[in-house]
Nucleic acid binder design. Structure first.
Ligand SMILES: [Mn+2]
Ligand SMILES: [Mn+2]
Ligand SMILES: [Zn+2]
Ligand SMILES: [Zn+2]
Lengths: 131, 131
DNA sequence: ATTTTACTGATAAATATTATCATTTTAGAA
DNA sequence: TTCTAAAATGATAATATTTATCAGTAAAAT
């Protein structure tokens, strides 16, 4: 898993390893701040710039997904396979939905629009939040 | 259509009418800045605070949807009926998809999560952007 | 007309994200 | 193992978006 950076053509630095380690298998869809605060424990000199640079580079190379369901901030997802999300509008938790749904646009629409990804978001209230 | 504010229990002001007039039937999913700049023509004293206050009030009362597909900023949608979106990752245009898709979560999942809305986002490249 | 309530807009502040750039580090070549 | 080119780090500044304050004003209710 530390080799993931090399395979993506990125230089391997201790800071990046710490970020990747935090992300790897992390299903909480953390924000940049979540990541920053965690990695800060091991790297007291860590900068937000490094977090954003790393996330941007990873996302651009396909090693990370940016989730836009939270209106307040970007959330990041190490699960790069096709899947969908539950979003609790109260606690803002995001949970993966791995079920596959067959949705297809009409052929005329697909002629006018190259679909690269389909994101399904279920907005609602999670169990904890409904008391 | 100007009565929409009253029906939602909001005071009817000229600024709000101008905002509603800009939004009404507008399928471009404008940002707060788009709205501000347009309404500014008629109200040179218009403030961003008024735009945000109005949008927030409208959204809270269900007279407006907030669209989160653009990672850079919130987009607003006067179409409050259930529908979905095409999002061009190059020009950031958002287009309505009115087709209905039948997606249902498993019963166990619906026990744990009250689904209030389902948003399907088709990310890709629009006709104009693919040269 | 008077009162109550809510809205406006100037301004400041908070939050999130991006840009600069000198210094340091990595990775690969010699 | 040096050496070197390329890239990353982090301090800092800047930008962008959004929210908070609040005195003055305007809309609605009485
Ligand atoms: Mn996910
Ligand atoms: Mn729409
Ligand atoms: Zn919740
Ligand atoms: Zn486009």
């Amino acid at each position: 898993m530390p080799e993931q950076y090399r395979q993506l053509g990125m230089k391997l630095t201790p800071q990046r390893l710490a970020i990747l380690h935090y992300l790897s298998g992390n299903g909480t869809h953390p924000s940049a701040e979540n990541i920053y605060k965690d990695v800060l424990k091991q790297f007291p000199t860590m900068s937000f710039a490094t977090v954003y640079n790393t996330l941007d580079a990873l996302a651009e190379k396909g090693g990370l997904k940016v989730v836009t369901v939270d209106p307040d901030k970007k959330r990041y997802d190490p699960n790069t396979g096709p899947h969908h999300h539950l979003y609790c509008i109260k606690c803002k938790n995001i949970v993966d939905i791995n079920k596959e749904f067959k949705i297809r646009l009409s052929d005329e629409m697909r002629r006018d629009f190259d679909v690269l990804a389909v994101c399904i978001e279920f907005h609602g209230i999670c169990r904890k939040c409904k008391k």
